[in-house]
């Protein structure tokens, strides 16, 4: 099992009240799965993804990533896991605007202790794997939205993570480009065996995945596998 979430809750103190964004979620994801998470706005999808991506820690419950419990880890240990085990793709791309594409992709490697030459080589091959080998030196604002998201995907993949997490990766793209990005995810899952968990509002996107998890008010309301494809 790559991801094993058990009775995870997340509460945010907000003034005198607390917002209960997750109210006890169970979720386990096997190696090679492609999971889509859907649900109405405010249902806790991003909150869950942040916990899965070790950007945030649960208020209660347990979470094991690639067999190791992470809910008790401190800052720097979480940073190391984000660096090596997780690739995160954001709705807003989150690229460094002054860095060319290859340097954005290289970024996770700079915290890993490889030589400059090796880092550059890996960054270039990651960009080639998302069909951007010809855009290495372009700055983010010299790239289209779809290209930017592909740079972000290359960055997420460059360290060979255990799981690729994407929070509404097509949310800022028009439907045609969104479909291309989605096809890229499907390809990575099918051809390269990358484990993917992806949040979306788009039912079409959801259908590309082989498993669909629905959240509502911080709870998991359904979890369906597409048995035809397994």
């Amino acid at each position: 099992m790559i991801l094993d979430v058990h009775q995870v809750t997340k509460e945010f103190p907000l003034g005198a009240e607390t917002v209960r964004a997750l109210r006890g979620i169970d979720l386990s994801v096997e190696r090679g799965e492609f999971v889509a998470i859907m649900g109405p706005s405010g249902s806790g999808k991003s909150t869950l993804m942040n916990i899965l991506g070790c950007l945030d820690t649960p208020t209660a419950g347990t979470y094991a990533l690639d067999g190791a419990p992470v809910e008790t880890l401190r800052d720097d240990a979480l940073a190391a896991i984000r660096n090596r085990k997780v690739g995160f793709v954001f709705q807003t791309f989150n690229l460094l605007p002054r860095f060319p594409a290859w340097k954005n992709v290289e970024l996770p490697l700079t915290y890993g202790g490889l030589t400059r030459r090796e880092r550059r080589r890996r960054a270039e091959s990651a960009l080639e794997s998302v069909q951007l080998g010809h855009r290495l030196g372009h700055l983010p604002n010299q790239l289209s939205g779809g290209e930017r998201q592909r740079v972000a995907i290359a960055r997420a993949l460059v360290n060979g993570p255990a799981v690729l997490l994407a929070d509404e990766p097509t949310g800022n793209l028009d439907s045609k480009v969104g479909a291309e990005i989605l096809a890229l995810f499907s390809h990575l899952n099918a051809a390269e065996g990358v484990t993917i968990v992806l949040v979306t509002h788009d039912p079409l996107v959801g259908r590309a995945a082989r498993r669909m998890v629905r959240l509502k008010d911080g709870l998991k309301v359904s979890d369906e596998r597409d048995s035809d494809l397994t």
Partner: peptide, 16 residues
């Protein structure tokens, strides 16, 4: 701040 967030998200530790 955003750059710091991005760097931390991809694995920068406090000391980095």
């Amino acid at each position: 701040t955003r750059e710091i967030g991005i760097r931390k998200a991809v694995g920068a530790r406090r000391r980095d």
